[in-house]
Design a protein around this nucleic acid. Structure first.
Length: 296
DNA sequence: TACACGTGGGC
DNA sequence: TGCCCAAGTGT
């Protein structure tokens, strides 16, 4: 074994040990969790803090314990139970994915990353995560946490590039432990390390199992020098108005009049109309006589 | 490639 | 107090 391989194996042991000791006991990590439960947890966790996912996930799993259960539900019920998780189109896609599982995969969560990738709402990250965490395939899972950990530990940079680069993918693949079980644990462990210790702001380096090997720390933890990520505006955007419209419909029984919907953004009825049209286009809202409702 | 797409907690 | 950011995907 080369020196590099020996050192990498050392890193694997330390990170996996840290994970054994510090992993959060998220409900979908319990023994006996089904692939469907893992699948739902992954979609819900997209761009969403895990702590906010837990109660919604539990509610969904009680209500729709199999893909067939969700496939037969009304889209509007999925959006309603989605609550305030954000990006409610994910709820629609989750249901569409369930329909695809029933139609094309015998009601099961597909196993191959290729089949997973073909499902609505599933991209490279989710396909790899479900293959690894639900099915035990040693796919390379790269999320924002993994990218940040690799950027710091291996590249010596404060933060990862704006989008996944070929070099990052190469580094992530090269860092995987050779044994399948270790690889799957590694995927979860590096994500967890990024979520709990190697955080975007105020990383807890004193708690990090590999801080002594971290290229960024060794370089004196230099500040990010690349392009500044432009923050997304929010006030007055379609996104904000759409959010208010869906929230109103979610909390209403039956349909809501157009006049009532317009009240979510009284200063600009035309904007509300435009957002309403977009929401209908997206399948999040349905016209209902004179008013609107969540899709039945 | 860059932008749209929700929401709320932390600093 | 706002701004940043969170287990990304689709176009």
């Amino acid at each position: 074994m080369s020196t590099a391989e020996t050192e990498l194996a050392h890193v694997h042991r330390r990170v996996l040990s840290w994970f054994d000791e510090h992993a959060r006991d998220l409900p979908w990590r319990a023994a006996g969790t089904t692939p469907w439960e893992v699948f739902v947890s992954e979609v819900m966790s997209q761009q969403t803090p895990v702590a906010r996912v837990v109660p919604i996930w539990q509610e969904w799993m009680r209500r729709w314990p199999t893909p067939a259960d969700l496939a037969s539900a009304a889209p509007g019920d999925a959006v309603r139970l989605w609550g305030r998780l954000g990006y409610p189109r994910r709820a629609l896609r989750l249901r569409e994915a369930a329909v695809a599982m029933v139609e094309r995969h015998d009601g099961e969560v597909p196993t191959s990353p290729q089949d997973l990738l073909a499902l609505p709402g599933v991209g490279a990250y989710t396909a790899a995560a479900v293959a690894s965490f639900a099915h035990g395939l040693p796919e390379v899972v790269v999320d924002t946490n993994v990218r940040r950990v690799l950027a710091r530990a291996l590249e010596g940079r404060a933060q990862a590039a704006p989008a996944l680069t070929a070099n990052e993918a190469r580094l992530a693949a090269g860092a995987m432990p050779p044994e399948t079980d270790d690889a799957n644990a590694w995927n979860a462990a590096v994500m967890e390390l990024g979520a709990l210790v190697c955080t975007a702001r105020s990383p807890r380096c004193e708690e990090c199992p590999v801080s002594d090997l971290c290229a960024w720390r060794r370089a004196g933890s230099p500040a990010h020098d690349g392009p500044v990520r432009r923050s997304q505006s929010w006030h007055g955007t379609d996104r904000q108005v759409r959010g208010r419209v869906v929230q109103l419909l979610r909390e209403s029984v039956g349909s809501v009049s157009r006049e009532q919907v317009a009240q979510v953004w009284p200063q600009d009825p035309a904007k509300v109309d435009r957002c309403l049209a977009g929401l209908v286009e997206d399948g999040l809202v349905e016209p209902d006589g004179e008013g609107y409702r969540l899709p039945v």
